[in-house]
Design a binder for these strands. Structure first.
Lengths: 153, 153
DNA sequence: GATTTTTCGTTGCAAATGCAACGTGTTTCC
DNA sequence: GGAAACACGTTGCATTTGCAACGAAAAATC
């Protein structure tokens, strides 16, 4: 007859406050949330904002280009672009050379909107850089190391 | 009679690759994605994982506690907890002192699972720390500065 | 040059999300 | 002690999301 022994499994110590995936997520969500105040009044969602930003400093661009550059699902890009077109901020044409591609570009209204929003985003970036001060280059270096690190296993 | 002059709105230069909200989001998503490989096989979603982690180093805890501590919507916590209970990983009791509160805690099965998963998460953290090397303390400092920075406006 | 493969963008669908509203229980205030 | 205000956790609902599947178009293969 075996005894019924209650074994309390011992868990390793774990400091959530030092856990980098958690910390980074927190920081990213905070910055994105604060930034969103800039474009939300203009009726833009976050995916729409990202598309607009990309179109602001690129010329004619396909959905696939944005997908790769901003790492957004192509369906997300597609839907964001559709709404931006409805709002008159983005023009969507077929690429004359390749019938599969769509050529996205800002309309004049889109450029006018971004001419208002981008300076505010740049200003926010300046504030963040000021917050980091002299540590900024090192912070960038650290981020790019994390981004380029290959996945484990 | 006014001339119809096409004015191309000039947009300010904008380097997405240096934009901190974007960079942080990228890095956070990458780390979270890589980490998810550890708990996804166990059938845990990300919200469920977060709840499990919190319960691993706290005792009996209410939904509100988790909401505040891990900054997850209470509905998200509630639904994650409901599924964890169904899976037998979490026990949900009413708090005897306060009838509104729910007392969440790991079951033995839950502790056993986390005893498997936590070391792997800790190992992943060690890899990240190794990647950052001597810059780790400064990186932490930078992150906490960004997190504590008050929102503009 | 016809056929198979691949690429691109959209859409259908199931699941997840955020928010408000609700029921229940507790605290506050008179 | 009763009424109003508040806190907690769940649920309903509209919206968003990710993924797979699809049709159209181009590339690759033979």
């Amino acid at each position: 007859m075996t005894q019924n022994i209650e074994i309390e499994v011992k868990l390793p110590d774990f400091e959530l406050d030092l856990f980098l995936p958690y910390l980074l997520t927190e920081a990213a969500e905070k910055l994105s949330h604060d930034l969103a105040a800039i474009y939300r009044d203009a009726g833009l969602s976050t995916p729409q904002w990202r598309v607009m930003v990309h179109l602001s400093y690129s010329g004619q661009v396909s959905v696939r280009d944005i997908e790769r550059r901003v790492s957004m699902e192509k369906s997300k890009v597609s839907r964001a672009a559709a709404r931006l077109e409805l709002a008159g901020l983005v023009a969507k044409r077929g690429d004359p050379d390749d019938g599969r591609l769509v050529a996205l570009g800002l309309t004049e209204a889109g450029r006018a909107l971004m001419a208002q929003l981008l300076p505010r985003a740049i200003d926010y970036q300046r504030q963040l850089e000021a917050t980091l001060g002299a540590d900024l280059p090192l912070f960038h270096k650290a981020l790019s190391r994390l981004l380029n690190k290959e996945a484990p296993e």
